[in-house]
Nucleic acid binder design. Structure first.
Lengths: 215, 215
DNA sequence: TAGATTGTTAATCGATTAACAATC
DNA sequence: TAGATTGTTAATCGATTAACAATC
């Protein structure tokens, strides 16, 4: 497997497409296909084939002219590149409906996510188990972050508490927040946030339906 | 309220920011603030103030030089522009954990979303009620789409069924799909899709944490 | 009036797409 | 070999940011 070491930082749009390539490669591997062209990947994702080649090239993988990309090799390369084999323990904060749904869903396991524990401030929730994970009081969070060396939090709480909880968990040592709360969080330099902005998506789709938007 | 009629289509990044402006305006209205500057909105969202002015301008609203934007007027203008007052009935397909979470969540009501009914193929689920909404058999979907004039579907089903279900509901008349399934859907021209790609978000956040990514 | 803030044009930046030589 | 496909440079496109005249 030739790898072209490339220290350039990968653009986020590229990064978000890579899991799609990975999924396609997984299906193709199951179907026992040995090689795949950028054009074929592009076709199944309805994007440009140059983009597929550029994205793959950005991960440092090198294909074979005339032949395409080795399905198994590229799949394994993307696994390494995207760090699926690194276990990423995370705390889920907020055992409401969405939190419970995410706790029960195990589809992210293959990307390395492990929800190590759940936290909530509601005494009725504390002590119960959700999908084999314990629900703890928020007050235990700082201590448990240190014990388990957890850097990531998944925030599934109402928007009105989101900033206060964020301040609390960042003080406690959390470095990355996957935010499902409808709120724009202020965090210090060096803390990473990914907003899962469901409202924006819904509104975008509504306006597309009403014809206000291209595509 | 001066409105500068503008027929240009709005860019999607702009559209996705507008709900953030709306939420800020709502808070400011509660605090009884009369006017707000683009710089102040920009500060709370950590973006550029020119962008705020450009985005607002794209909706056709006109502010007052030296004074800023009228909070109440702009909030109401955005409500109209984003169509929050138009009720958008939608069918939720897939009464799994995520589907149940979305069905129970009423935070999208203010944007006009109304989940009119839930569908599932699992006989154990059919007939139950989730948050006062009935769960129906998928076979009733085509008829009910016609009866209720529903154009939007929320897909919360496993990835492996996503394409088949999509074909089925598109045939039945669905025009817009909010897709939570981990799958890239093929649809005919004119059918709108918004992919809520949770995996891509999680992977992006993971790599940010590992320092592979800027910001 | 002077100062602050808008609205918009121009400049910059970055991502996507086109073109094409390299190559197995 | 001829043809197909890669990898990459150049061109295009679109979004963000800078600059600044208009204005209340």
């Amino acid at each position: 497997m030739r790898i072209n070491m490339n220290t350039k930082q990968i653009p986020i749009p590229t990064l978000r497409r890579l899991p799609n390539y990975y999924n396609i490669l997984c299906s193709m591997l199951v179907e026992n296909q040995k090689f795949v062209s950028s054009a074929k990947i592009a076709l199944s994702l309805d994007i440009d084939d140059t983009q597929v080649r550029k994205d793959i090239s950005a991960t440092g993988y090198v294909g074979k002219p005339k032949v395409g990309f080795d399905v198994k090799e590229l799949k394994e390369h993307l696994e390494l590149f995207l760090g699926f084999k690194n276990l990423k323990p995370a705390f889920l904060i907020g055992a409401g409906n969405l939190g419970i749904a995410l706790a029960k869903y195990d589809g992210f396991k293959k990307y390395g996510l492990h929800i190590a524990a759940i936290f909530d401030s509601n005494p009725d929730k504390i002590g119960i188990k959700i999908s084999n994970k314990d629900v703890y009081s928020m007050s235990l969070l700082p201590q448990m972050i240190k014990e388990h060396n957890v850097k990531m939090a998944i925030l599934t709480i109402p928007g009105e508490y989101a900033q206060d909880v964020t301040n609390f968990i960042v003080d406690a040592g959390i470095k990355a927040i996957w935010n499902f709360a409808p709120a724009t969080l202020k965090v210090p330099e060096g803390i990473h946030i990914c907003n899962q902005d469901l409202a924006a998506s819904f509104i975008t789709l509504s306006l597309m339906l009403e014809g206000e938007i291209n595509t």
